[in-house]
Design a protein around this nucleic acid. Structure first.
Lengths: 342, 342
DNA sequence: CTGAAAGCGCTTACAG
DNA sequence: CTGAAAGCGCTTACAG
């Protein structure tokens, strides 16, 4: 059998309590005693049973997730993942509460952050809006010693401990390469549909996309980005107008949400005999159907479940003061085409 | 606080032992008592703490992984994942041993399976070779009541409990779509490099690819598949010869291992001013470099770590006689291009 | 600075 | 058919 705290205590000639003190770096142990225990741990090749430790601790981690009240499939999936994590909380000793805020509203988010901090949770996760009041609120939380993780959309220079989301610059470049190669040698214009340029993730996707297109596909002209507010109705109208206005459009990159509206516009275009190479974000019931019927050519995706679980792991590590293995927390940019749908 | 077994015992007016019997479906409980306990569980919204249960059980699951002695990066990664899982074993109460067998050798694999079964492990995972002796050996294991999971490569009609790997037919179709669209309207030939047609995963990729190409890209002709035995030297020679023989080759699909050899051949071709659109499998140091320098256009990947962890979860579930949530165990086909490398 | 004892939520012989 | 008690590997007051 594997060595336990008992074995170490015996080998080192001390009590369980002392073993525990050394293992957890708690003060009040003579150097000499500490050395004995550490030697016993090493020589026995001891590895602590985290599950048993958690059980004994009985500690629970109250975490607060602040999520935008955004009516789109991705945010719904994200919310569902958080709720699911809450249900698993018993095992992982987490207690997760969700606070809703209006989407793309920096002031409301900042207020919610301050309020959440009052409760002194063990950690806070937020989908950031790129605004100074938010930065200030995060700074205040950090000053109180509360771990903060940004989720999906990051917030630079805010002092947040970690960002649980994809590299959106890279996502934009990925979209550029796929769109450019799928279109091939033809010349034409590309329409760009964003959600809002007030969030970092959309800004970054746009910049990565523009960069990639300029570099590799001089045959394709980018048109000015349209802001769809991640709203299906707005998106539909904007895309329809753009297609009507500009007959040169042969490709669309939709980097935000509101896929339903985009799909409706593409269907109408197809009805008029016009096929547009299209790349969108986030796999959902709708985007999956669009891939299957050829309205979308590729969908870039971030796994909401992974992001939420990563955020929780990091918050827990921060709360425990143990280091985070960054490489392990990297979130991948999934590419889906009609053939590799999960 | 959340309800525990104690709360249930009190509410139902029984002892802990009886609660445990009902919860775990063990015999020897009067129907009436059982009903009382179940009612208490329901009304209290009880969810068992699996970690505590495992701790109390003290049960360990001895699992055997049978892996091919194959000198390629993917198999190395798979092996590393299994070893890593073994190290985490303390927490998850698993004890994993690895048995090596020669690659692509059905008889050796069958023998290893029989031998592994003698040890009466709690479960066995194998990278299957499509051969009747293997099928028979798996059948014998199942007769002994040992859970069996195929890993990476499946074995139909063998009675295995589960397959932890990607849908390779879909992977082949994915490769076809990407290759065809990247090449565009040009006409030409496509070379196919397989590892061995004695393994199901390679068979399936080939069939999915052929199907996809035939359907969507009549401008592209497939040449006869070359068997590289997942060996870099063999692969290099085969590809070089094919390129020399057939000047019409404008694309390559490499569906097995041996990427180093393929890369060497492509480099030589590039030296001769010949650029070949190439899709390969499995992300490694080499394939990553090839994506970055444009020798590869896309790499399809299966996450070895996911597969191993899934296999273990399933084996454990089978050993415990609890159901597996199939959807949760689906392994994704990752698509990597130069821009979304992790 | 150190230790004896109780307890986290479960399971398992053992006894009846 | 049912229960009292000990124990899994750890942590935590409390006492000294």
């Amino acid at each position: 059998m594997r060595p336990t705290v008992h074995d170490i205590a015996i080998k080192a000639g001390v009590s369980l309590a002392t073993v525990d003190r050394v293992m957890n770096g708690r003060p009040g142990v003579r150097e000499k005693t500490k050395a004995k225990v550490e030697e016993a741990i090493r020589s026995l090749g001891y590895v602590r049973d985290v599950a048993a430790a958690n059980l004994a601790k009985g500690r629970v981690y109250p975490f607060t997730f602040i999520l935008p009240l955004n009516d789109n499939a991705f945010m719904a999936a994200l919310r569902a993942s958080v709720e699911q994590a809450g249900e698993r909380g018993r095992i992982e000793r987490t207690e997760i509460s969700i606070i809703d805020v209006p989407a793309f509203d920096g002031d409301a988010l900042a207020k919610a952050l301050i309020a959440a901090g009052e409760e002194e949770p063990a950690g806070i996760a937020l989908v950031a809006v790129d605004a100074d009041p938010v930065r200030a609120a995060v700074g205040a939380l950090k000053k109180k010693g509360i771990p903060v993780v940004t989720l999906v959309s990051d917030l630079e220079d805010s002092g947040r401990d970690h960002y649980a989301g994809v590299d959106n610059q890279a996502a934009g470049r990925t979209a550029a390469t796929l769109l450019g190669r799928f279109i091939g040698p033809r010349a034409g214009s590309i329409a760009i549909l964003v959600g809002s340029l007030s969030v970092r993730d959309h800004q970054n996707r746009l910049s990565g996309f523009s960069e990639g297109m300029a570099l590799d596909f001089p045959n394709l002209q980018l048109t000015a980005p349209m802001e769809g507010r991640d709203d299906a109705a707005v998106a539909e109208r904007l895309v329809e107008e753009a297609l009507a206005r500009d007959p040169d459009i042969i490709g669309i990159y939709s980097l935000g949400a509101g896929n339903r509206g985009l799909i409706a516009a593409l269907e109408k275009a197809r009805g008029n005999g016009r096929e547009i190479v299209t790349i969108a974000h986030e796999l959902s019931e709708h985007s999956r159907a669009a891939l299957e019927n050829g309205l979308f050519d590729a969908v870039l995706n971030q796994d909401a479940g992974h992001e939420v679980r990563s955020a929780i792991r990091v918050l827990k590590a921060e709360a425990d003061g143990v280091p985070v293995i960054a490489a392990q927390e990297r979130i991948r940019i999934d590419i889906f085409i009609k053939d590799n749908l999960p």
